[in-house]
Nucleic acid binder design. Structure first.
Length: 350
RNA sequence: GCGUUUGAUGAGCGU
């Protein structure tokens, strides 16, 4: 059973939920009865594939076989429902589980808090925090990080900072994520010096900044027009042995372009094409947009055509960039043609 | 005795 569960989990984690579900069926035939772990693994993975309805079907099957769902089953399902905006259904499940005397734990509460925060409902989230504490469930680093991010999304970075201090005073040591959330928050409100200070503070506390914390700082510096400092940070990043990923590249490219260093950006783009990293749609879109906006519509259209050669299907954002580029040049007929073609290509306009 | 399988948190592009 452990072997089956381990393999099913592995399959789910590499995106083969269907194969995993097939294995679940074969277990039944092979006389090895799946348990709550088997079902939880598949239910969670099905939810993450955004097939919450199917997950609920599997949930019913499981109950039909008298396998008792536990707090993990309910948390996975509620997470799936929340991610697809089905709040009522999620709250019905919460009631159902409590009716069965299955009490939400710190993961359940943190998930709910995170969901509320992402919707901008930080005071609601604070309410949940209060409730969980009353029930004797102590918040952990996940709970605090979600709350911090919630405040940062609302640009209430001072509140986020207070949470970080609460964490420290409660002996819940902030991790790299906590700091990178705060760095991002300060960058978004253009308080770059505070962001830098938080970055240093993180190092002083013995944490090793990762690619995300560097990325946050980089994009903040670019947005503030502090290109030289950005390059300095990039150098540090290399020195510390971090390599660039697609997101870091796109931050650099976008930053260089928006600061008027188009040639440097183009050079970086060429480097990238020669590296093992294959530019994704966001990278192409950055370059295409820059070309459109600097009167190089011809180059932009060439690059756009190159996408399908590279096996990339333009998404809504890329189409919008191109349509906007055509409109700017007054080529309204061409723009309209593109508009119709995107639908034909199975990319409905938004 | 212990460990071994399932759930929660951070960065990029267009209008």
């Amino acid at each position: 059973l452990h072997t089956y569960n381990t393999i099913i989990n592995g399959l789910c984690k590499i995106g083969e939920t269907t194969v995993a579900a097939g294995l679940l069926k074969r277990m039944n035939d092979a006389g090895c009865q799946p348990d709550v772990v088997t079902y939880n693994t598949i239910i969670d993975s099905t939810c993450k594939d955004r097939l919450v309805h199917e997950a609920l079907d599997i949930f019913s099957q499981m109950k039909g076989k008298s396998i008792k769902p536990d707090v993990i089953t309910y948390t996975s399902l509620m997470h799936g429902l929340c991610n697809s905006g089905q709040w009522k259904e999620a709250s019905a499940l919460l009631n159902e589980m409590m009716g069965l005397n299955i009490m939400p734990d710190v993961v359940t509460f943190s998930m709910l808090i995170d969901t509320l925060c992402k919707e901008g409902e930080v005071s609601e989230a604070q309410g949940v925090l209060k409730k969980m504490t009353e029930k004797g469930v102590e918040p952990n680093i996940f709970t605090y990080n979600s709350l911090m991010d919630g405040y940062c999304l609302r640009r209430e970075v001072v509140e986020a900072r207070k949470i970080l201090d609460v964490m420290i005073s409660k002996g819940c040591s902030p991790d790299v994520l906590s700091y990178s959330i705060l760095i991002n928050g300060y960058c978004k409100i253009k308080r770059i010096d505070d962001a830098k200070q938080v970055f240093d503070e993180m190092i002083h506390r013995g944490l090793i900044p990762d690619t995300v914390s560097y990325s946050n700082l980089l994009s903040g510096l670019f947005q503030a027009g502090r290109v030289l400092e950005a390059k300095e940070v990039l150098k540090n990043m290399y020195t510390q042995g971090h390599s660039l990923n697609l997101i870091t590249y796109s931050i650099l490219l976008d930053g260089l372009i928006k600061q008027g260093c188009f040639d440097q950006a183009l050079e970086l783009f060429r480097d990238m094409q020669n590296s093992y990293l294959k530019p994704d749609l966001a990278i192409y879109n950055t370059i295409i947009d820059a070309m459109c906006k600097s009167g190089k519509l011809k180059d932009a259209r060439e690059l756009f055509l190159e996408l399908s050669v590279k096996g990339l299907q333009p998404n809504v954002r890329v189409w919008t960039t191109i349509i906007n580029g055509l409109c700017r040049e007054g080529l309204l007929d061409e723009a309209y043609k593109a508009f119709r073609q995107m639908e034909e290509d199975g990319c409905p306009p938004d």
